[in-house]
Design a protein around this nucleic acid. Structure first.
Lengths: 232, 232, 232, 232
DNA sequence: CATGAATGAGAGTTCATTCAT
DNA sequence: GATGAATGAACTCTCATTCAT
């Protein structure tokens, strides 16, 4: 990404590794794991095929690196975005938009990560879980703070909240992509995210102490109106 | 499925086709698309490799048939289950359990359907969309009835409701499988589905403190004022 | 080798297997195991590369087949040749010429068998030992008969006799080949074999000044005494 | 071999060359020519891969150096051992034991030398022959002295004697190794060598002065017996 | 002199698909 | 219709050798 000519040996090595990961990222995204050709990755990284094997043990390890890098960046940008916001609702809305946009452009990588890891060795598989755990930790933190502030119901296990939140976003994303919609109508996307988040918020916020709920206010108002009418 | 010895030529042909699809289903589920071996499918269907190509143009077409059959059965069982229930909430809960259980055992097929179709020709891809559309039609019908009976909010596009419902279930399913949980603790699964449905139901019914909420509050405030005035 | 056009399927399969083994034999002989190219073997057998893998699991298995076939024929021709001769010395001379000539033309295969098997799995390795054991059984039989007829000394373990016999022949063979002598001066070769066999025969028959020599001397002394007595 | 820290440049270079040869020796012995990895040799010699190419043109040249060094040492130790013995028989027995023991531990190198050189260029190949010629010169000298002293028959070409001597030993050695016998039962090995040498000695010593030969005694005895019978 | 990262040709093996029987 | 032997393109990965530093 740096456009400066790398000078030291260490820098050259790092630049190469990055170039290979970037090329692999592209090719995996376009063709999937089995469909990706090492030769193509090498070509795009402007590197000999053999060189790839100096940096990565094999194709699987390369995927691992791609996924790892992806999640690292995803986690970093999520954390950064959340940082500036204090309102739970606002934080969730940011995470939702952030996740949605990332998914739309990198859906294939996420899918690959999941689909491929399952048939991999236990060890590698646990690597993926780790990436994911670190990423959702950002979300978990927001939720737990919301619970502490009594904004969010405490009687739902956090993993179910994750299911609702991420599930809704990813399903929406998948539908988008399957229909071949260009993932570029950001306004439309934002509207969708907003609606999904509205429902999610309804699902996870406290429901017991309804006094302030409009529905209740409405009911009370109706009773008062009825009384007023009778008195009149 | 029929255990009677097929007699007519027509029956023999159909039995063979079914056997091939069943075998392919198994093998695709176990090894994925690229990982599946035509030879293995032929072996399990007790058929020569060449015979498969009499029934299906190629591996892709075979996957298409497998996915089609799968969705047909899924749709049929969903419809059947919904039929006996009149309560919207109950219907949704049935659909949720039904979807969750199907996903847990056939996740690979669903994933394959999505992942593989994307890199297929437009035509084949549209085939998958059709399968899916038919399946979710059952859900859509339930939702629309709920809206007509004013049980479900009408101000949310139905596709967002689908995202929330199916997304939550499938994300939950994925997590289950990734962690290697045996998908057999039905009680635990049922509890999860129940919690998810509780949230979803809140999301699609509860009238929230939405942007428009303030407008409502103002209206109510005005009405309360009017009542106070009258009482005075 | 059969020049008749094979008619049945069974015959075609066998002809192909033979052709592959023959081609592999040639190529292994010319280039060694690592140096042999499957593509070249396929070309010479007039078969597609993939076809070879229908007949043999892998390159190793192909070598195994080549060596097995080679030893089978070697054993058969050795047996046949020995069969018509009754004199032990003549039988050994036949076996010597037979072994020498076979070695000269197939040295590489023998070498390969030994050298390659050592780094193979235990199982395969034992396969080679079996081939060899069957082959030297012909020799062992001749030796044992010679011992029974008291032509050959019984006080030397048979394996040492084998070492002397086969060792001398093979070392001679190796020297021939290393010097690049064409292995075609049969008269010269025959003379060498004859000289070697003369020495070997001395080694395994001549009753030396060895420990056991005294026993024989004693016997002869006793017989001489008896004769003297009779003459007297 | 010198454990003193090399001081001069010349010494450092020689120490390196030795280290590389020693490492290559090990690796060739363990994995054969094709199986040996330059990287592994470099690692064991504590030298960079590229450095090896400063000392040796390529892998073949490295093998050549290894074989050359091996034969040099082999020849030196053979000469040294023979030197202290005056009896031909004793000298041969020493050479036999010496060769057997060397073969058992360095069989792979000997095999490699032979097998690899054949497919090398004429020039390199002649190099191997030279090594070997120098080595067997020790043996040849002993034999010729034996001939001069009329202990050994003069009517057999010396190369045939070599075939018998070295052939028997190496074949024995090969059998040992193929059966996976540990080459460490020195007593057993010594016994085998003794038996082989006994036969070899019988084969190469003069046969003309048979008076004392048992076979002749036997013949004479038979004649006497026959005469006695007739007289009777 | 020494390094070791980079190269890239080349190998064995697999498997969807075909077609003569 | 059914078979299954045959095909051969295509892939991943290795490793001797080079050369800029």
């Amino acid at each position: 990404m740096s456009n400066a000519e790398p000078r030291t040996r260490r820098e050259r090595v790092e630049a190469r590794e990055e170039a290979i990961i970037a090329a692999a990222h592209e090719v995996f995204r376009e063709h999937g794991f089995d469909g990706a050709r090492i030769a193509e990755i090498a070509r795009r990284a402007a590197v000999a095929e053999g060189t790839i094997y100096l940096y990565f043990k094999n194709k699987e390890a390369l995927l691992h690196a791609v996924v790892g890098t992806f999640y690292e960046r995803l986690t970093a940008s999520a954390e950064e975005g959340v940082h500036g916001l204090s309102d739970t609702r606002k934080q969730l809305e940011f995470l939702a938009r952030h996740h949605m946009i990332s998914c739309l452009s990198e859906w294939r990588i996420i899918e690959l990560a999941m689909a491929t890891y399952r048939q991999m060795s236990e060890y590698e598989s646990s690597g993926y879980l780790q990436f994911n755990k670190t990423y959702v930790a950002v979300f978990d933190h927001v939720i737990r703070e919301g619970m502490n502030r009594s904004e969010i119901r405490k009687d739902i296990p956090i993993w179910n909240i994750r299911d609702l939140f991420y599930g809704a976003l990813e399903y929406s994303c998948r539908t988008y992509l399957l229909r071949g919609h260009a993932a570029d109508d950001l306004v439309e996307i934002a509207r969708n995210v907003q609606r999904l988040m509205h429902m999610v918020w309804q699902g996870i916020t406290r429901v017991g102490d309804k006094p302030t709920g409009h529905a209740d206010l409405e009911a009370i108002t109706r009773r008062l109106e009825a009384v007023a009418t009778r008195l009149e």
